[in-house]
């Protein structure tokens, strides 16, 4: 469709060319099959080296490429670099945010740990104090009970000793009475208590 008629500028037949261009439009692709009148040109000028077409190619390259260069530098490059910049900033900001949050959570964890240690310490302290207090109290009560018991023991011992002394004191009298009674029964005569005492002392020696 676009690769139909050869340039054929060297013939200077521009009018014919215009007509051929119109032909090409009406005949379409088939035109390339039917063969073009300027088929003989091929031997003369290899199209890329046909200098007569250079001016037109250079001009249109300058126009199109120049326009493209302007569009690229004015519109496309700022646009794409803007998109990339925004994305990079966003990623950096998000990373910063994430770091900040991580620091915050680390701080929260540290605070929690500290609080926990403190609570543990104070719990231990309270426990210790309570235990100590209980121990002291128990000790005091024990001591009190001990002293009470000791007192009672001493008291009892004293009482026992007194009773025993008293009893021992009374043993002599009982023995004297018993002896005088026994003697009275056996001998039939009474003896004086002095004699009895003397006898008892002799016996008990």
């Amino acid at each position: 469709m676009f690769i139909t008629n050869a340039w054929a500028a060297e013939e200077g037949a521009h009018q014919a060319d215009i007509k051929l261009g119109a032909d090409a439009n009406s005949n379409g692709v088939t035109h390339s099959e039917t063969g073009t009148p300027q088929g003989g040109d091929h031997g003369g000028a290899f199209p890329p080296f046909d200098t007569s077409t250079f001016a037109s190619q250079l001009l249109w390259l300058a126009i199109t490429f120049g326009l493209f260069f302007i569009i690229v530098s004015r519109v496309i490059v700022p646009r794409v670099s803007d998109i990339l910049e925004v994305r990079r900033d966003r990623i950096l900001r998000d990373l910063d945010e994430a770091n900040r949050m991580k620091e915050e959570s680390d701080a929260a964890i540290a605070a929690y740990e500290q609080e926990l240690a403190q609570a543990r310490n104070s719990a231990q302290n309270i426990g210790n104090t309570a235990r100590d207090a209980a121990k002291t109290e128990a000790e005091a009560k024990r001591a009190a009970a001990d002293s009470e018991l000791n007192k009672k023991l001493v008291e009892s011992e004293n009482k026992i000793a007194a009773i025993r002394t008293k009893a021992m004191g009374e043993v002599g009298t009982i023995a004297k009475d018993t002896v005088s009674e026994i003697v009275k029964e056996l001998v039939g005569s009474s003896v004086t208590s002095a004699e009895v005492s003397k006898a008892i002392t002799l016996v008990s020696k």
Binding site: F2, I3, N5, D17, I18, G21, P47, P48, Q57
Partner: peptide, 8 residues
């Protein structure tokens, strides 16, 4: 070569 020809 035909494909390289220029048409006005």
């Amino acid at each position: 070569i035909h494909q390289f020809q220029l048409n006005k």
